[in-house]
């Protein structure tokens, strides 16, 4: 069976949303930060449990508050990836507030919380950091090294099937 699912990446600017998409779709990474204006959409076809899944990935421009994002971009969203930067607390300080808003506005769309730039931590330091900041439910990724990038997209896709 072939299905299409719309996944939207949201979060502050500079957290690595575009890098995660590039790593996942194009297997590429650049150290240079290039701001995203508006939206950029990419597609990735994957096989999942005998299903042909077309992931339509909407990479939105960064915004500190989800409620300030253009609502038309969210239309028809099947699932969200809420991305933050593990090295910048300001990008996860209002995490709960943003998640609450998403759950209220899009109750049927599952949300995966992604802490990116894990490559900037040592293994033990990262565990300690997540515990200290009560972020145990977060999936940590590194767009730079590719760690967990496919996992995070595919775990969400599996939830959407």
């Amino acid at each position: 069976m072939e299905v299409s699912k719309k996944i939207v990446l949201i979060g502050h600017f500079g957290v690595g949303k575009t890098s995660l998409v590039r790593r996942y779709v194009d297997s590429a990474f650049s150290e240079d930060y290039l701001v995203t204006l508006g939206v950029q959409v990419k597609k990735k076809q994957i096989e999942l449990d005998d299903n042909q899944v077309n992931l339509i990935i909407w990479d939105l421009e960064g915004n500190a508050k989800v409620e300030n994002m253009r609502s038309s971009y969210m239309l028809g969203t099947d699932g969200f990836l809420y991305v933050f930067d593990l090295t910048r607390p300001i990008t996860f300080n209002n995490l709960n507030e943003n998640l609450e808003f998403i759950k209220k506005q899009y109750p049927k769309a599952p949300v995966k919380i992604v802490g990116n730039k894990a490559d900037l931590f040592d293994g033990n330091d990262l565990d300690e950091f997540l515990t200290k900041n009560k972020l145990e439910q977060v999936i940590t990724t590194s767009a730079k090294e590719g760690t967990n990038v496919a996992t995070v997209f595919e775990e969400l896709a599996r939830e959407l099937l």
Binding site: G38, V39, V41, Y73, L75
Partner: peptide, 19 residues
């Protein structure tokens, strides 16, 4: 993701700044 959303009920959809 957009084409299936247009219908008689949702007759105008606007998307600024699309790359």
């Amino acid at each position: 993701a957009i084409v299936p959303l247009v219908s008689a009920e949702a007759e105008l959809l606007e998307f600024p700044c699309v790359n």
